[in-house]
Design a protein around this nucleic acid. Structure first.
Length: 570
DNA sequence: GCCGTTTTCGGCCCGACTGTTTTCAGTCG
């Protein structure tokens, strides 16, 4: 798989060209090509091998030749030449907020500064002030920027992001001048992790909203404070941006502030081809007459497209599909009839089966799968035969007296290092649902991990593979597996793959989940709830499924109970 | 460097905020 390397080289070239002061459009061409390859599902080398690179959007003759070279040699001459001209540390300076290519180049040219550390030292020694366009405030901002960089503004999980956004919304929604207020950005798009929080408000009088925002009690530092746009840092170093526009422009503003950047750029290009112009204020004709601005839907309609749900706005084909009126009918929260992954006190959950059942009923579920851990996962009190019997009897008793919701007797069973399940066949057969999971041996090779999962799929008693890539935010990255092979076997054996929507997991992610669907694999959303409140994470799972373009029929959870039990049969 | 419902040349998303400037460049999203 060469995609990561090719993208990395192209992105580095873009950064180096920026510092060099090259044509901005050439720079963007490199950046766009890198983005395109990052989200590409197939191996770029197979495109190259078939001479099909130029079929990819944004890749022409020149880039195709460079990509061929990178695949063959791991790098390309153009890149090596640029690296010789500009030290790595100069590129690193771009990561400092407030420092762009022009400033980095200035410091390098004038003071021979070639690292962030050297920059910090020069700033402290007062050597920066006096350079063209650099005075005291700029120096102070650079020092603040370096401090910010050192703290490492990491991406946060989606639950934390929602909580921060909610705190801001709650702090401002009662203001008289606020007509509407809503989180936008990657949070609204349902991304698996979020960096900055973007919030949009509609108000005829932005000034008091801005004032209230920068004065919120959890604001540690004000990064920008303008008439309609401000940015702050919260006590825990999360950046929150607030933009305020007139209520009449709310739709246009929401479209702009939701992004993604790539989606917006493409929409705006499309508008230009139709002799129109889009901004956060609306869609305008050549004579600057506003044609639409109140809702996103009206703006899409002016472009001849169907409304594109926020989760799809990543420039991954949704614009073309919208123009053809061929968007998928994405799954919605009300399509979900049950949760397929939840724990109780029998293993490491905090709630009883009764409490989980009540919570499930409140959510309107038809069924809830109680997937306590299996015998070999001792740290999580995996159930042995005796305790399984107790749990079975307990669930049967509850099911007899309960109306509306059926508890499913299930397990999250260990897939061992060789791909075997830790319960014997006669025990496995007693479960309504078996979810197989890898919780150990993450350091195995890609081939070994793939073999393990494939073997679990081939097991006639395993119905779902939990969190297929094992990632846990932020500490543990995904282990590598051969998705192509796993999808093929999962399909052949009628094994579903899980979209585990615990905010620390979000696994499968959007890109592999979409690839799984396209490979004909069924998916199953599970919250991995260890507490009644965790059942609410289903909303993150639905968001992720929508990002993967999933429709109702692509998921197990949307089936009524009897159909579900039939659908998982192997 | 890419690309074509005006174009194979001449475009390439669009606007807010900051700091340094007397009208704008740089950065950001």
């Amino acid at each position: 798989m060469f995609n990561a390397r090719v993208a990395e080289v192209l992105r580095s070239i873009a950064e180096l060209l920026e510092i060099k002061g090259d044509n901005p459009f050439r720079i963007r061409a490199y950046g766009r090509a890198a983005d395109r390859i990052t989200v590409l599902q197939e191996d770029i080398a197979s495109y190259a091998g078939q001479g099909r690179l130029e079929e990819l959007e944004g890749i022409g003759k020149d880039l195709a030749a460079k990509i061929d070279e990178i695949i063959a040699t791991g790098t390309c001459r153009h890149y090596e030449e640029l690296k010789r001209a500009i030290p790595r540390g100069v590129v690193d300076m771009l990561a400092v907020p407030g420092i762009g290519p022009k400033t980095a180049k200035l410091f390098y040219d004038k003071l021979n500064i070639r690292s962030v550390a050297a920059l910090q030292q020069a700033a402290r020694q007062g050597r920066l002030a006096g350079l063209p366009g650099v005075q005291e405030k700029t120096v102070a901002n650079i020092l603040k920027g370096i401090e910010l960089l050192e703290k490492g503004r990491q991406r946060m999980d989606i639950l934390t992001a929602q909580q921060v956004a909610q705190a801001v919304v709650d702090g401002l929604k009662h203001l008289k001048s606020v007509k509407e207020i809503e989180p936008a950005g990657s949070l609204r798009r349902g991304r698996e992790t979020v960096r900055d929080i973007d919030i949009l408000a509609a108000s005829p009088r932005p000034a008091p909203v801005m004032e209230a925002f920068v004065g919120l009690p959890f604001v540690k530092r004000v990064l920008a404070h303008g008439a309609t746009k401000s940015a702050v840092l919260t006590q825990d170093d999360t950046q929150v941006d607030l933009r305020v526009l007139a209520p009449a422009a709310f739709g246009a503003a929401l479209l702009y502030f939701t992004g993604s950047k790539e989606h917006n750029i493409k929409l705006r290009q499309l508008a230009i081809r139709k002799k129109l112009r889009i901004s956060e204020y609306g869609i305008f004709d050549k004579r600057d007459r506003c044609l639409a601005s109140r809702t996103e839907k009206e703006i899409y309609a002016r472009l001849g497209m169907d409304f594109i749900p926020p989760e799809m706005r990543e420039d991954r084909g949704e614009i073309e599909a919208g123009l053809r009126h061929a968007l998928p009918r994405l799954v919605t929260a009300k399509d979900i009839r049950g949760d397929l992954h939840a724990h109780t006190r029998y293993s490491d959950g905090s709630a009883t089966p009764e409490e989980m059942a009540q919570a499930g009923r409140r959510l309107g579920y038809e069924y809830l799968c109680l997937t306590d851990h299996s015998v070999s996962l001792k740290v999580a009190h995996g159930l042995d035969k005796e305790r399984l019997k107790k749990k079975r009897a307990h669930i049967d008793r509850l099911n007899r007296k309960m109306r509306g919701l059926r508890l499913l007797f299930a397990t999250e069973a260990e897939i061992d290092a060789d791909g075997r399940i830790d319960y014997p066949v006669e025990v496995l057969k007693t479960f309504d649902v078996v979810v197989g999971a890898v919780h150990s041996g993450f350091k195995q090779s890609k081939a070994q991990l793939t073999r393990r999962i494939v073997r679990a799929c081939r097991n006639p008693n395993v119905h779902i593979i939990a969190h297929p890539t094992g990632r846990q935010w932020p500490a543990r990255p995904s282990y590598e597996v051969d998705f192509k092979e796993i999808f093929k076997i999962a399909r052949e054996t009628n094994t579903a793959l899980e979209i585990n929507c615990h905010p620390m997991r979000m696994d499968l992610g959007d890109i592999p989940a979409r690839a799984a669907k396209e490979a004909g694999v069924r998916l199953a959303i599970g919250t991995d709830a260890h507490d009644v409140t965790h059942l609410d994470y289903m909303r993150f799972g639905v968001g992720l499924a929508r990002r993967a373009w999933l429709e109702k029929q692509d998921l197990l959870n949307t089936c009524p109970l009897q159909k579900l039990l039939k659908a998982i049969k192997k």
